[in-house]
Amino acid sequence: MKPAPFVRHVPRTLQQALAILSQVAGQDGRILAGGQSLVPIMAFRLAKPAHLIDINEVAGLDRLESDGKVLSIGARVRHAAFHAPVTDNRLAALLTYVARHIAHYPIRMRGTFCGSLAHADPASEWCLTAATLGATMVAMSQRGTREIAASDFFEGIMSTALADDELLAEVRLPLLTPDAKFGFYEFNRRAGDFAMAASLVTYSLVNGKMAQARVGVGGAEPSPRRIEEAEAALNGQSPDDDAFRAAAQAASDAVDPLEDHQTNAEYRRDLVRVVVRRALEHSLT
């Protein structure tokens, strides 16, 4: 189907974008970033925004920089920016590995990192990454700028802490230590589909034992999150099959799985066990 009519605004500066957003937010005015989620839902007429603020011409939003502590990702940085490592920090290798699981090449050419977070699909790989690593979201409006922790950002299926007049201007991801291990695994039926469950893990090794473990699970609940019970099962243990199986079981027990037409809760709970174990196994390769 065809999208319903709308008025397009093309700001050139961030200030202009925020000013227009504050004017039209009340009339279902929305940001148009990569359009790779918004245009399909407009084609289905699930969304009929009266105004679209196209941020593709706004100067400066393609900022992608690391200051030694965090990697800052601006609102127009596309998924494809991560096809090759963006810094020499370990985080860049993680992002490159995860990026290739998002949709397909032509969609990655347009879709944005920040757009994925604002859209907040439960199965989004970038949402899982932000939740697992503890990202900071920088939300801007004419009222001011605020930082939102990942744990407060995701509020449910396609729902975030962003107010209607707020632009997600930047996301900051903490860099990893040089010795950090990471692993990722997602399960879906066809390449490029949204994950039915996915897991991202990181930890470091102190005298051969896992420490500062982070175990994130996405696609299984309304929002991705870290699973403390699984992290506790890893910290202080050697990275071996026993520890991985214990953590995977703990994650599986801890989730409250979504159900849909192809998966019931029991099936998804089992998938969580599998994806966490495989993400942990991937951390050793």
Binding site: M1, K2, R8, G35, V39, P40, A43, N56, P106, R110
Partner: peptide, 27 residues
């Protein structure tokens, strides 16, 4: 499909292969 699934509409814009059903002409 007109919603990004099939890729029949793929064209190259400024050197990038993209789904032309997910871009507006004005862009």
């Amino acid at each position: 499909c007109e919603h990004g699934i099939c890729g029949a509409c793929t064209v190259i814009v400024n050197g990038e292969p993209v789904r032309s059903c997910l871009m507006f002409a004005v862009q």
